[in-house]
């Protein structure tokens, strides 16, 4: 049994390392880093960005993702909201939007708050039936 723990940990570490080195090669769209390093070669290609709304005018919205600012046509959103944008990259960091999903700032924050409540619920329920024995490094059921 004691052999299993390092083996499993090694397997997990290998999986994470594999993901770290291969992640970008398997993404369907160019990364922000790639776009920033060679912008012109990606003009006309589909991109997917996740960023924060940095500015809104009557005609456009500015989306900040990484160190880049992209412009899209106006959508009903506010500064600080998070957005997922799928679209075609044009000149001057303009994206012709094909699909967009907006997370309102408060709504995004509330998701974390709800998750904290869920975590507390789980901790309460779990610790009601299990306790951790540090010496044995095992959980034992409460009687």
């Amino acid at each position: 049994m004691k052999v299993l723990v390092p083996l499993l940990a090694l397997a997990m570490f290998s999986l994470c390392t594999y993901s770290y080195f291969e992640f970008e090669h398997h993404l369907p769209y160019p990364t922000l880093k790639e776009v920033a390093s060679n912008y012109q070669s990606y003009v006309g290609e589909r991109v997917f960005i996740f960023g924060t709304v940095a500015g809104v005018t009557e005609e456009t919205c500015v989306i900040s993702a990484g160190n880049l600012n992209f412009t899209i046509d106006h959508i009903p959103t506010r500064v600080g909201d998070k957005v997922e944008v799928l679209g075609r990259l044009g000149e001057n960091y303009r994206i012709a939007v094909e699909k967009v999903l907006v997370y309102e700032r408060m709504s995004y924050f509330m998701e974390f708050c709800r998750s904290l409540v869920g975590a507390a619920l789980l901790a309460f329920f779990f610790l009601m039936y299990w306790k951790f024995k540090i010496k044995k490094f095992k959980f034992v059921g409460r009687k």
Partner: peptide, 9 residues
């Protein structure tokens, strides 16, 4: 999805 749904389901 939040953890309330994940934990309660």
């Amino acid at each position: 999805m939040d953890w309330i749904a994940h934990v309660l389901t």
